[in-house]
Design a protein around this nucleic acid. Structure first.
Length: 104
DNA sequence: AGCGTGACGAACT
DNA sequence: TAGTTCGCCACGC
């Protein structure tokens, strides 16, 4: 059984619109916690990878980051590109424009 | 109850 | 500019 914190993270993930990406820090701020590490841990333990858009979460510097699902980072990049997010050399192209902010 | 680890971030050297 | 270190909170052992 997942913890309440986990479910909150996954719910935040579902808010990310297709074709956009967000950062671990943004999620942490949205949840009101200052621990991006905890968010990363929570995202990595999500039960349904394709169902929950965990692949739309990247690092603060625009890098893709990591991925625990089948296929690893390559699968994450592939999914993003399917949605129109261009990835080049492991980083999001035009990252600030692709960045989704949790509008209160 | 305590310690180590982690899909990170920001600061420092 | 790149590589390293410390700090953050939650979770598993």
């Amino acid at each position: 059984m997942a913890t309440d914190f986990q479910k909150s993270v996954w719910k935040a993930l579902s808010r990310i619109p297709k074709g956009s990406v967000t950062t671990y820090g943004a999620i942490a701020a949205y949840l009101g916690t200052g621990a991006v590490r905890a968010v990363g841990t929570a995202v990595g333990k999500n039960p349904d990878a394709p169902q929950i858009p965990c692949h739309r979460v990247v690092r603060a510097n625009g890098r893709v980051g990591n991925y625990s699902g089948p296929g690893g980072i390559a699968a994450k990049i592939a999914l993003l590109q399917e949605e129109g997010v261009v990835i080049e050399a492991g980083r999001v192209v035009d990252f600030p424009n692709r960045f989704y902010r949790y509008t209160s």
